[in-house]
Simulated scan of single mutants.
Amino acid sequence: MSAFVLAFRNDPAVTATEDQVAAWGTWFQELGSAVTDMGSRVGATTLLGSSAGANALSGYVLVDAADLTAATALAEGCPGLSYGGSVEVGELIAM
């Protein structure tokens, strides 16, 4: 197993509805033991570099998966994808 970060990105002007918040809770339960760190939601952000038009970081979670393909499969269930958000999946490298 390897560790991966699922970084959630969304328009900072979007406020999740109660149904969307409930969908996130359900999805996290479905992820079950793959979650190693529930991470956090992210508030105000500052973006440096050439990606100024990108969606802002809105949260993250750490998961264990067999490989990048398996981690991506976990991310495909993210509720934010249904309302314009995105998920960046990255393998964590031990230091």
Rank of each mutant, 00 (worst) to 15 (best):
G32Y: 07
Y83M: 04
G80T: 05
E30V: 05
P79N: 02
D37T: 03
V42C: 12
D11I: 01
L47N: 12
V61K: 05
T36K: 10
V61I: 14
T26M: 08
T45M: 05
A71Y: 06
D11H: 04
G80A: 12
D67H: 03
G25E: 12
D19R: 07
R9W: 00
M95K: 10
D64N: 13
G85P: 04
L57V: 12
A73Y: 01
A73T: 11
T45N: 08
A7W: 01
F4P: 14
V35S: 10
A44S: 14
V5I: 13
D64Q: 14
G90V: 09
R41A: 15
G85R: 11
R41E: 15
V61F: 05
L48R: 07
T26F: 00
D19V: 04
A52E: 14
L48K: 09
Q20C: 07
D19C: 02
V89A: 11
D67L: 03
R9E: 05
L81R: 11
L6W: 02
T15S: 14
T45P: 09
A7C: 13
T46H: 14
A16Y: 08
M95W: 11
G43E: 15
A44R: 14
A54C: 02
A16V: 02
T69H: 11
E76T: 07
A71M: 11
S58V: 03
S2N: 15
G49K: 04
G32W: 06
A22W: 00
L68G: 06
A34V: 00
M1K: 07
F28M: 15
M38G: 14
P12W: 06
T36E: 15
G39R: 04
L68N: 03
N10V: 00
S50G: 10
L57S: 05
L6S: 06
E18V: 10
G77V: 11
G80M: 04
S33N: 11
R9C: 01
N55H: 07
S50I: 08
G80W: 02
V87D: 06
V35D: 11
A44E: 15
